[in-house]
């Protein structure tokens, strides 16, 4: 016998493991090992593919497998989906070999979103490291489109070297056109690099943030996020105003496979975007 609550519950719920088909429109190489797939999103029952900034898809390459990839395009343009992908393994390599007109499978969008509405009326500080800029790009598009609703927009971005910077043209545009403060730093400079050299945490001293009026969104490698959050708190930003996007191994994307657990949290459904107080106690622990 089965609990009747469960028996009748959501018999129409989505079959969460079934991918929808989408068509690759273009592959743009951002760096030597990172590329952006521009995709014609799947249409379900004539509806367009709506997503929120911060969410991710499970992207499937035929026969090779799936990878959890954040959406890096503009949520207000749901007809053109972008995924910026670091080529590191078999799935991300298979996806990198796709050409215009090829088909991929998509499941999603999954996960929590960046708190854009909460940021209305506030200064927004975006701190990204490496590929961590990709899940924040939808936020930047949104903030700039609704520019007058926000105070200062500060974008701090750290990468390994000048050649590893993503979205170089856009970074230039954002800093020039839209009344945003963009500060870029790299771990290793070269003689042609005129920007900052050093870690992202070192950039806050140039900002003179009005911390009570600021909300921060942070995404990057876990070490970078940990130190960035510490620095933000040290500068007086309340933990409740700091958000970060976490990464873990994901197989299902919907909280059923158990892989992405971070303490009691499932990164795929309770995250990936968390406020700092939700997970602060876990960030300091080893191998959680």
């Amino acid at each position: 016998m089965i609990d009747t609550n469960i028996a009748v519950k959501r018999t129409e719920a989505p079959i969460s493991m079934l991918p929808a088909l989408a068509t690759v429109r273009r592959v743009i190489w951002e760096t030597d090992d990172t590329y952006t797939l521009l995709i014609d999103p799947p249409r379900a029952n004539g509806r367009s593919f709506a997503f929120s900034a911060g969410q991710f898809n499970m992207v499937y390459a035929f026969g090779t497998g799936e990878s959890a990839i954040s959406i890096s395009s503009d949520p207000s343009r749901p007809n053109m989906l972008a995924h910026t992908i670091h080529r590191v393994g078999t799935v991300t390599s298979a996806l990198s070999r796709l050409r215009r007109g090829d088909t991929i499978g998509l499941r999603g969008p999954f996960g929590t979103a960046w708190p854009i509405e909460e940021a209305v009326g506030k200064d927004v500080c975006i701190a990204a490291g490496g590929i961590g800029l990709a899940p924040l790009r939808p936020v930047i598009y949104t903030l700039l489109r609704r520019r007058e609703e926000f105070g200062r927009i500060m974008i701090l971005y750290g990468a390994r070297s000048p050649l590893d910077l993503l979205y170089r043209v856009e970074l230039e545009e954002w800093s020039k056109a839209a009344n945003a403060e963009v500060i870029i730093t790299v771990d290793r400079g070269d003689s042609s690099w005129k920007g900052h050299i050093g870690v992202v945490t070192g950039l806050f001293s140039y900002l003179k943030m009005d911390t009570p009026a600021t909300l921060a969104m942070v995404c990057g490698p876990e070490v970078m996020m940990k130190y960035t959050c510490e620095e933000l708190e040290r500068r007086g930003l309340a933990a409740e105003r700091i958000y970060l996007s976490m990464e873990r191994n994901m197989k299902c994307g919907v909280g059923l496979c158990g892989h992405c657990q971070f303490g009691p949290k499932f990164i795929c459904k309770d995250g990936p975007v968390f406020s700092l107080p939700q997970i602060k106690h876990l960030l300091d622990r080893k191998e959680i």
Partner: peptide, 22 residues
């Protein structure tokens, strides 16, 4: 039963087996 049906997504294979289960 809870694990596979309490979230927004459910495991259809599991629940199909459970619904018919004696």
């Amino acid at each position: 039963d809870r694990v596979f049906s309490s979230g927004d997504y459910l495991d259809d294979g599991y629940l199909s087996a459970r619904r018919r289960n004696f």
